[in-house]
Amino acid sequence: MSDTAMWSHEHDEMDECVRALEAVHAFLHHELADADADVIRVHLHACERCMENFDIESTITEMIERSQPAQRAPAGLAARVRVIRRTLR
């Protein structure tokens, strides 16, 4: 397979790729609003290059999560973060 064919896109806008890759970590950590996550999900299904990058980032994230014990934020901090997130939306 040629490099050109491998990196071909179903869409014309490279800006879509840039936005998707900028949001990949937030997407992986479920930090995006549902509508924003849906946009990224649709893009990843349409763009082989971005899906490959997502797969790499996903694998790295999974490896990091497995190597670290799960920790919870103190209840007070978690509550303050939820309030701040609601006000930012």
Rank of each mutant, 00 (worst) to 15 (best):
M1R: 06
M1W: 03
S2I: 01
D3G: 08
T4D: 04
T4I: 14
T4P: 00
T4E: 03
T4A: 13
A5Q: 10
M6A: 06
M6P: 00
W7G: 02
S8E: 13
H9N: 10
H9M: 15
H9W: 02
E13K: 14
E13W: 03
M14I: 12
M14T: 12
D15K: 12
E16Q: 10
E16W: 04
E16N: 14
C17Y: 06
C17D: 09
V18R: 15
V18F: 10
R19T: 01
R19S: 05
A20Q: 02
L21C: 08
E22Y: 02
E22L: 11
E22S: 15
A23G: 02
A26P: 00
F27N: 00
L28H: 07
H29T: 11
H30S: 14
H30W: 03
E31N: 10
E31F: 06
L32H: 07
L32S: 03
L32P: 01
L32A: 08
A33N: 03
A33D: 15
A33F: 04
D34T: 11
A35H: 11
D36R: 01
D36C: 04
A37V: 07
D38M: 13
V39W: 12
V39H: 05
V39M: 07
I40N: 02
V42G: 01
V42H: 04
V42P: 00
H43I: 02
L44Y: 01
H45Q: 12
A46Q: 10
A46P: 00
A46C: 07
C47I: 08
C47W: 05
C47N: 11
E48A: 14
R49K: 03
R49L: 13
R49W: 06
M51S: 10
E52R: 11
F54Q: 00
D55T: 11
D55Y: 04
I56Y: 14
I56G: 03
E57D: 10
E57R: 15
E57Q: 14
S58M: 08
T59N: 09
T59S: 07
T59Y: 13
T59Q: 09
I60G: 01
I60S: 03
E62W: 07
M63F: 09
I64V: 14
I64P: 00
R66P: 05
R66T: 08
R66A: 15
S67K: 02
A70F: 12
Q71G: 05
R72Y: 12
R72D: 15
A73G: 04
P74V: 14
P74H: 15
P74K: 15
G76N: 10
L77S: 09
A78H: 08
A78W: 01
A79G: 03
A79V: 04
R80Y: 09
R80C: 08
V81Q: 09
V81N: 03
R82M: 12
R82N: 09
R82P: 00
R82G: 05
V83H: 11
R85I: 05
R86H: 09
R86I: 00
L88T: 01
L88I: 06
R89M: 03
R89P: 00
